[in-house]
Computed example of a mutant assay.
Amino acid sequence: MSNEQSYTTEEIAKLLKISKLTVYDLIKKGELPSYRVGKQMRVDAADLEAYKQRTKSIKAAEKPALAEVSARPALSASHNGTRAVVITGQDISLDILAKHMERNIPGVRPLRAYVGSLDSLISMYRGESDIVSTHLLDGDTGEYNLPYIRKLLVGSSYLVVNLLSRWAGFYVQRGNPHNLGSWSDLKRPGLRLINREKGSGARVLLDEQLRLHGIPPDRLNGYHKEESNHLGVAGKVASGEADVGIGIEKAASIVGNVQFIPLIQERYDLVMMKKPENREWIESFIYILQSDAFQNELRTIHGYDLSLTGRILLET
């Protein structure tokens, strides 16, 4: 193997004949050193080879074979008696939620996967994640999330519960030099946009608004220039590389020289599959969402509306 070569989590899963969940678990435990390129986690070939050599030296009695690990269901007990629960999404509230789960649900080890809303639902459909976050606007109904969940998880038994609501809108430079205040303003010639990646909630929001306002995407200068998170979009606007971007209020408060123009309050929901092996932790999970301890911690973060937090929105 070349020391310059690296692999994605999907490629490692195929090479080792294990599940992506097991790869995430190895990265979480530090057994596979990794780094992020865009929205992908990557592992150098040299580190993968070192892991393989260590694995070969461990007696079968001390550790299950890789083939046995790959055959386990997503939430089966690991070698130390805990269950890995993969939580997808990028909002900091999910990191806080994972911390509360680790403290208060015995036998559960939360793992974080930083992917967008649509990709999160697809990963759940494929059985690769356990709690997915989503903020996807259906422009025809004005409804968030449920239309997409019903279509993608058709035939499945699942639970949808609200995490929080938050404002989404434009990032513009301080003082709003182009006087942007509505979605229709994107029709103006000469505006430079910085976009989010396909599958993210912000990208779906923009695409739906462009469709509703009859704005062809190709008319937008920068439509195909992408950033993988809200901070990246806000940063491009702050530096003057773009005139406008789509994102949430919190990122604007972190990045200097950026003003936030609120346009829509989006509902940020969580989805869980009602599988038999999930039932024992789902009840505790709902209790955490509804607890004062968790909600009081979220209240310290500007821009969150917790009026629906912990409310079950749909159960099939």
Rank of each mutant, 00 (worst) to 15 (best):
L180V: 13
W167I: 10
Y158G: 09
A168T: 13
L180Q: 09
R150T: 13
S156C: 09
H178G: 08
S184K: 09
L146S: 11
Y148A: 15
P177R: 03
G116E: 13
G116F: 00
D138Y: 03
Y144Q: 05
D138E: 12
G127Q: 05
G190P: 11
V132W: 00
L186P: 13
I122A: 07
N145L: 05
S184Y: 01
R150H: 13
V204D: 00
Y148I: 06
L121F: 03
L121Y: 02
H178K: 13
H135G: 08
L118Y: 15
E128N: 11
V160N: 12
S117W: 04
W167E: 13
F170D: 09
K198Q: 08
G127H: 06
R203F: 12
W167N: 14
S156E: 15
R188W: 04
I149C: 04
Y148K: 08
P177Q: 03
M124I: 11
G190V: 07
Y144C: 02
V172D: 10
K151F: 01
L191G: 07
N179P: 02
V172K: 00
H178M: 09
P147M: 08
L164A: 01
R126T: 08
G190A: 02
D140V: 06
V132E: 05
K151H: 11
V154A: 14
V132G: 02
Y158T: 05
Y148W: 15
P177F: 00
R188F: 09
G155H: 06
S120P: 12
L163K: 00
G201T: 05
R196D: 08
N145E: 10
D140H: 06
L152C: 06
S200R: 00
L136I: 12
G199H: 01
